Amino acid sequence: MTFETQDLMPTDAGLTRAAAILRAGGLVAMPTETVYGLAGDARNGVAMARIFAAKARPTFNPLIAHVTGVEMAETLAIFDDRSRAVAAAFWPGALTLVLPLRADAGLSPLVTAGLETVAIRCPAHPVAQALLRAFGGPLAAPSANPSGRVSPTRADHVRQGLGGRIDAVLDGGPCAVGIESTILGLDGAPTLLRPGGVPVEALEAMLGPVGVGGDAHKPNAPGQLASHYAPEAGVRLGVTAPDEGEVWVGFGTDSKGAALSLSPGGDLVEAAAALFQTLRDADAMAGPGGRIAFAPVPETGLGRAINDRLRRAAAPRP
């Protein structure tokens, strides 16, 4: 089935139209500070099935429910003092919490992939917040791209990947963070389930040591599949001397001669914001059957999330 994908602007009229589409079970790509999300009514099973179909996403991979704040989140998940404190410190923002699902949450089982936990985020982007308020309920919103491919940080990226498969794109401009949210499991000991826009060091400063979890074969949060964020070209990592014909993507001042750079000055915030657009640009330069080589990126702060995405982009394709 194909759709005439509407282009909407974040005006009162555009937000009203987007909310009406969502209430009717439709899908609207919305901007967040991390990446564009493909939003649908998290309580509507048909809408959730449409998300999985539009993205060709495996249904065992759970979704993130987006909310206006803690009050709405507590209708979906069981919070305790610790999780409330973390939410107060990092919401709205690029942190997703995985918490025990409330029995009366009313979410489609597709959102949680049948698990007894739910992933919840309160986005900071003003357009996402405006749409959540206009809609009046939780929106499940995985990244608005075909499953496994490079995540979208601009409305044009969404149109390129999902045009004709979804009802509308709400254009809020480029995403500032440019990399998906950090996912923190708090249904037991604090566990990092996906590195992202909030560095784990910031979480550990509040919580103490944070373990690492996640299973590519049985995900309990998004972003855990071994192959993900993949361009068409092959990807090689940690490259200081590229092979002939490779598109070399540099980082910092040691990558002179690189065709592209995540950050010439070695700024991890700049690199995170540029990552997915750079992957797309390098893919276009490499062409069919080409290869992309990435210079080393430090495994600290946002570098952990950047390297996580790059490792998944370089993994063998299913």
Rank of each mutant, 00 (worst) to 15 (best):
T2A: 14
A128S: 05
I292A: 07
A293T: 03
A176D: 13
K218F: 14
N307Y: 04
W248D: 04
V46T: 15
M206I: 11
A24H: 13
L170M: 09
G93K: 13
L139P: 04
P142L: 03
G287A: 02
G14Y: 05
G137K: 00
A272S: 13
C122I: 05
P10M: 01
N44I: 10
L99T: 10
M1E: 12
T2V: 13
R311P: 02
D104M: 08
L139V: 06
G245E: 08
S108W: 13
L95Q: 11
D7H: 15
P242N: 07
G185E: 14
P142Y: 07
G289T: 01
A18K: 06
A313N: 08
G287M: 01
E246V: 11
G289Y: 07
L101D: 11
L260V: 12
A176L: 15
A42Y: 07
M285W: 09
D171N: 08
D7R: 14
T253Y: 03
I51K: 02
R43K: 12
F276A: 05
F276L: 07
N145A: 04
T2R: 15
P152I: 10
A202I: 05
R236G: 15
G106T: 06
V297G: 08
Q224A: 10
I179F: 01
A134L: 01
I78R: 11
S181T: 10
G211K: 07
R317G: 02
L38C: 00
A18G: 03
P58E: 00
I21H: 11
T75G: 13
P219H: 01
G213D: 10
S181P: 15
V127K: 02
S263P: 15
R291D: 15
V239R: 01
Q6P: 03
L260H: 12
A241P: 02
A141V: 05
A233T: 02
A226M: 06
R304D: 09
I21W: 05
T32H: 08
D308S: 11
L279I: 09
L260I: 14
N44P: 09
L186E: 00
G257Y: 03
G289H: 02
